[in-house]
């Protein structure tokens, strides 16, 4: 009996310790404690966002960690990467290093290597690191564009306002056309109702000018949108982790584009007088109101700072 107990206790202890030691070794193997390491040096102007132990990634896979961060005498931050030998093949002479600070999640260093055939990166070399500050970067880029965007959009609204000159002109033109449609309307005008004749002349003169103005503003908006798209979604501006957030905005931009094409078409028609004016005005109204609601949507999608005090000039 006593021997039996001793055996069981011994077995328990031996097996447990074996398991613990085995697990420890396993963890150490996975953590690359036993493999040879390569050390690469990076430099940066600022240590902001850098931490010891932060992950170094290649194509989304962790290939190493930051081992040390130092501030040199001349104010440059030196970063030392510890890379297990099996991952060292990703580090080439032409490799680029970026510090990514994603909107959600911890910052990381990303390695991109355009040419895998290039010479391996030497451990003595020091490469400068670039910083991508996702959401802040996007906001910085898009803020001025959106501001212009807004102001152009407001311009369109002003032009197409019920009280605006354009609308008044259209209204007048409508009235005159109505008059003309009545059998004796034309005659009446021709026989010297000076007021009506004058009204017709001014309206007809003003209309193309106003339509041109509207067209200019609208094409202005088009330029702004193109600019915005290029800067926010273009190659330089592409930031993977905010893309989800922005893809919705992109869709809206596309819709806006279509609307504006429509507006331009409509104003062309208006100038040429090929369409029924009443229908045209409704179309413009509709296009403008959907444009402004789209712009509101875009604004709501991007977390911009909008504190604007009203200050005297």
């Amino acid at each position: 009996m006593k021997g039996d107990i001793k055996f069981k206790v011994g077995l328990f202890l031996v097996l447990s310790f074996a398991m613990i030691i085995f697990s420890a070794i396993f963890v150490m193997v996975v953590k690359d404690v036993f493999t040879e390491h390569y050390y690469y040096n990076l430099s940066s102007d600022s240590g902001d966002g850098l931490t010891v132990g932060m992950s170094v990634q290649f194509s989304g896979f962790q290939v190493g960690r930051v081992e040390r961060i130092e501030l040199t005498e001349d104010g440059i931050v030196m970063i030392r990467l510890k890379i297990p030998s099996r991952h060292s093949k990703w580090f080439r002479k032409n490799s680029k290093f970026t510090l990514e600070k994603p909107f959600i999640g911890s910052p990381r260093i990303t390695v991109t290597t355009p040419n895998m055939q290039d010479e391996p990166l030497s451990e003595d070399e020091t490469i400068e690191i670039k910083t991508i500050d996702d959401i802040n970067e996007v906001i910085k880029k898009a803020q001025p564009i959106l501001e212009r965007f807004d102001s152009v959009a407001q311009n369109i609204e002003v032009m197409t306002d019920k009280e605006s000159k354009l609308n008044k002109a259209i209204e007048n033109a409508e009235k005159i056309m109505e008059d003309m449609a009545k059998s004796d309307g034309l005659l009446e005008m021709l026989t010297g109702d000076r007021q009506s004749a004058q009204a017709l002349i001014t309206t007809l003169r003003a209309l193309p000018e106003l339509v041109d103005e509207a067209k200019n503003t609208i094409s202005d908006l088009k330029v702004v949108i193109a600019e915005a798209k290029e800067q926010v979604f273009g190659e330089e501006g592409t930031v993977p982790s905010v893309n989800a957030l922005l893809s919705d905005v992109d869709l809206k931009f596309k819709e806006l584009d279509k609307l504006i094409e429509n507006l331009i078409e409509i104003s062309d028609d208006l100038k040429g007088g090929t369409k029924d004016i009443d229908v045209l005005r409704k179309e413009i109204d509709e296009a403008v109101s959907s444009a402004s609601s789209l712009i509101k949507d875009i604004r709501n999608n991007l977390p911009f700072e909008q504190k604007k005090e009203i200050k005297l000039p």
């Binding site: 501001e147 807004d150 102001s151 407001q154 311009n155 002003v158 909008q306 604007k308 005090e309 009203i310």
Partner: peptide, 10 residues
């Protein structure tokens, strides 16, 4: 505020 600011600039 946002609207007034834009209108003022315009």
């Amino acid at each position: 505020q946002a609207n007034a600011h834009i209108q003022m600039e315009n």
